[in-house]
């Protein structure tokens, strides 16, 4: 018998894993985190309001699970660099383009942001949630989300050399 709740969660597992990896930077820990999220989602299933987006609800559970996990295990030192993970990227040596390098740097730039800023980048720019949804996931006011997001993007722009003067021209491509 099909169960839409379960089907929707399965369809969303890749996004949950991606967000989890951004949080913990270790694919193994990310899978643990996703599993905890799934268990909690089913345990709290009755509390899910079907009029709201399941995705936002799941992200919130996942992030809270991560906070719980870090509270319990203070093992930040043992994190694995995401670039060592098999799924981290697929850079073919002969095809290392500037774009690929740029994207790698972008990923690194996001990962090294303060956690608060990284989370809003992941939820809004990567997962394409609205400010309001992201605020719901993070349990913070929209104003806070926006100021973090703006700061994060300015920081990424600086790290990648997308500064305010060159952004438009590099956006039009063609520079070597």
């Amino acid at each position: 018998m099909s169960d839409k709740f379960a089907d929707d969660i399965i369809a969303f597992l890749p996004n949950l894993r991606r967000f989890a990896i951004s949080l913990c930077r270790s694919p193994d820990t990310a899978d643990d985190l996703v599993q905890i999220t799934v268990e909690r989602a089913f345990a709290a299933r009755a509390q899910f309001d079907p009029d709201t987006r399941l995705e936002a609800w799941l992200f919130r559970i996942l992030r809270n699970a991560w906070i719980d996990m870090t509270r319990r295990t203070k093992t930040r030192g043992t994190q694995i660099d995401i670039d060592d993970a098999p799924d981290a990227s697929t850079v073919d040596g002969t095809k290392v383009t500037e774009t690929a390098l740029m994207l790698q740097s972008a990923k690194a730039a996001i990962e090294t942001l303060p956690a608060d800023q990284r989370d809003v980048i992941m939820l809004i720019c990567v997962e394409e949630m609205s400010y309001k949804e992201a605020a719901g996931v993070l349990g913070t006011p929209i104003g806070t989300v926006m100021s973090r997001l703006a700061r994060a993007r300015i920081a990424i722009g600086e790290k990648l050399g997308i500064n305010r003067d060159t952004a438009r021209s590099s956006g039009s491509q063609g520079d070597s």
């Binding site: 994207l103 809004i124 722009g157």
Partner: peptide, 12 residues
């Protein structure tokens, strides 16, 4: 700047 950083983050 804001348009690009969003696009780059998503693609990365």
């Amino acid at each position: 700047l804001f348009i690009e950083t969003r696009a780059v983050a998503k693609e990365a």
